[in-house]
Amino acid sequence: MKLCIACGMPMTKPADYPLGDESKDYCIYCARPDGSMQSYPEKLEGTTDFLIRTQGLDRQAAHAAAIRTLAQLPAWQGIQKTMDTPSGD
């Protein structure tokens, strides 16, 4: 079983993959409609919104938690260093 490189979700069945393509290393929730992988800013925004929508976290706390949890994942290694700008929100 693979873990999504961009969010860590376990991928156990074809429906977990973008367009059902099991050769991909990222999951359907980290893909754009055309099957390509979302960018870091897209994923950061999506993760922040997910934490707010499903757990009700404060926006700033959710944003900070999203940055820290994404930093643990293979797809985003080194990304933050290149995007190391102060958050606007």
């Binding site: 979700m9 997910f50 934490l51 929508r53 499903t54 757990q55 938690a65 820290r68 949890t69 643990q72």
Partner: peptide
């Protein structure tokens, strides 16, 4: 420690994802 706090959020996210 902060890292453990993040792991806590990840556990809750696995549940909130399926819950939603």
């Amino acid at each position: 420690p902060p890292g453990a706090r993040d792991s806590w959020i990840s556990i809750q996210s696995a549940v909130s994802f399926h819950f939603s």
